[in-house]
Amino acid sequence: MSDLGSNLDDLYREIILDHYRSPRNRGELESPPAIRVEGFNPLCGDEIVVYLDIEDGILKNIKMVGSGCSISQSSASLMSSAVKGKTLDQVRATIAMFKQLMTVQESTLAHDGEAPKVDLRALGELAALQGVIKFPVRIKCATLAWNALVEGLDGLD
C-alpha cells in the first residue's frame, strides 16, 4: 500500500503542493480601482476572489483570496505568478495556452493518447497542472481562478 500510484504523483506534483502550502499573491487590492471578480464552484464549495490592477495595458498586480482544494488553490497561485506584470496580450496568450492544456489533453486521452500538442516548456511551472487532465472531475477545480481572470478581462472590453 505504500505505492501511491503514478497517477496520483502526476496530480500532486511537488510544485502544486508547494503552491498549495505557500500560495503566492495572497491578499486583496482596494477595489475600485482594482477589478474584483468572484469564482465559485457550487458543487464542492471552492471559492476564489481575484483582484486585478491593470494600468496601460499591463496587469501590474494580482491578488487573490479564497478557499478550496489543493488543485483549485495551487492553480490560482500558479496563475498569479504566471500573469503578474505581463501585458494583457501576454496574459490572454497564457490563458489560451492553459485552456488548451486542459482541453487538448483530454481529447488526446480519449483518442489513445497521441502526443500532446501543447508546448509544455512555454507553460513553465503551469505545466505541473497537466496531471489534472487524468482526473476529469478535477478540471473544474483547476480552471476556477482562470475563469475568474477571464471574466475580469472580459469586463474591460
Binding site: 501511491l4 500510484g5 497517477n7 496520483l8 496530480l11 500532486y12 464542492c44 482544494c69 489543493s70 488543485i71 482526473f135 478535477r138 477545480c141
Partner: peptide, 10 residues
C-alpha cells in the same frame, strides 16, 4: 475533502 477523497481513490 476532495484531496482526501482523491488519495483514497488510489
Amino acid at each position: 475533502p476532495h484531496d482526501v477523497a482523491q488519495v483514497l481513490d488510489q
